[in-house]
Design a protein around this nucleic acid. Structure first.
Ligand SMILES: [Mn+2]
Ligand SMILES: [Mn+2]
Ligand SMILES: [Mn+2]
Ligand SMILES: [Mn+2]
Lengths: 222, 222
DNA sequence: AAATACTTTTAGGCAAACTTAAATTTTAAT
DNA sequence: ATTAAAATTTAAGTTTGCCTAAAAGTATTT
């Protein structure tokens, strides 16, 4: 059963909200997809009809196992194309999301497997998000938010959990990209802002909003 | 003014019929796009409204300058993706057309220019069709049909003017791909069939239907 | 417990792109 | 020149995916 582009976008949006642990309200989906709550209710009926979601009126949407499987495949395609765009075509990490948003809807098993092979089966996309394999399994990096990082410990940036070009450009300009090494000097108890120090650069401060979207790993000092 | 996928497919179909010198009838377009004449009339109204075609009732469709420009851009995208699929992902020439039929609708100037650059600005696609440049200009190979080739002259295959997987597979199996060298031993006056000889292989015969879709170039004997 | 605010659904509508069936026009054949 | 055949358009209807406005349900405040 072949999904339409609109259906795929809804499925993916629902999946994303679910995996952030939020309850998937009509409003939330509408906001994410820049559409109206009434349109979401409308689509919800069709998706439930197709057994992709479960919809309890007034209480939110939930993907079925089938829906979740579909979502993961869409995400696989999205992230593989993002890798392609960055690694082969030379786009920056802040440019690729809207393009992948289109490319992800080309549903051809052989195409995507060959693309994966061409890219040497990358495990993470340009934002540090894991790429599900052909069977749909994947695992996250060890996840620590920069806003909760241990102080004065060597850290490495592993993921930025927001596709907005504004954030990605801002981080780039501050010298923060995937793999950047840094330390947290202090976390301001009042506003949650984080003072960070990159090698050979003066320390600077990131707001909590920013720090809450940046994930890091610790690594030994040796 | 952004075209829909359906509109792009119509524009391209009309362009293809026009460039084959055929009159672009409602029926012909419907047949090419596997839809109904009534749907073509319907779309024709919308396209005329948008100044992409001129439609004289009962007498066929004609692209405007604007429509032609659009068509050429779509074809550029189509053929570049075909190159990508063959050269980078390892697809065969008989597999790529349906995939490119989808990929061509991703309208992003930067994407397509970077793709062209990545592919080192190919001039011809995997079927020997010329790829328009970013400004829309291109030129055909010198065009001689195999069915009208000079006898006993060294020839090189330069283009196959039909995307059907069946034809392309048949030719491949006969040893005929782009660049294949061959001679025409004789052309049967009755049924137009063509006897061809490849190096180091026994001669064999191609039907007129097949020979009418294969283009060749002559080359000096030296 | 009522009143108010907020969220969600329903109702009614619209545009794109398709379909079939009927009417019309063009073309081909007697 | 009629007539028959073929092509084309018109008419009417469907599905998808969206919208606004109104109604209904849920949550929050007083
Ligand atoms: Mn998308
Ligand atoms: Mn990503
Ligand atoms: Mn297409
Ligand atoms: Mn081609």
């Amino acid at each position: 059963m072949q999904l339409s582009i609109a259906e795929e976008n809804y499925i993916k949006a629902i999946y994303q909200l679910e995996s952030q642990g939020q309850k998937v309200s009509t409003n939330a989906v509408a906001h994410l997809l820049r559409t109206r709550p009434a349109s979401v209710t409308d689509m919800a009926n069709r998706l439930q009809q197709k057994k992709l979601i479960h919809h309890e009126k007034y209480y939110g949407l939930q993907l079925t196992a089938l829906g979740k499987k579909q979502a993961i495949h869409i995400i696989r395609r999205h992230r593989l194309w993002e890798c392609f765009l960055v690694e082969k075509l030379g786009f920056r990490w802040d440019e690729v999301h809207p393009l992948a948003e289109e490319l992800e809807h080309i549903r051809d098993e052989r195409l995507i497997e060959r693309l994966a092979h061409f890219l040497q089966h990358p495990e993470f996309d340009p934002h540090g998000d894991p790429i599900p394999d052909a069977k749909g399994s994947f695992q996250q990096h060890e996840q620590i938010l920069l806003s909760q990082a241990p102080l004065n410990h060597p850290l490495r940036v592993t993921r930025v959990a927001d596709q907005s070009a504004a954030l990605l450009q801002y981080l780039t300009q501050k010298g923060i990209v995937l793999g950047t090494r840094l330390r947290v000097l202090q976390i301001n108890a009042y506003d949650g802002s984080v003072e960070v120090k990159l090698m050979k650069k003066p320390a600077f401060t990131l707001s909590r909003e920013v720090a809450q979207h940046v994930y890091i790993q610790t690594y030994g000092k040796n």
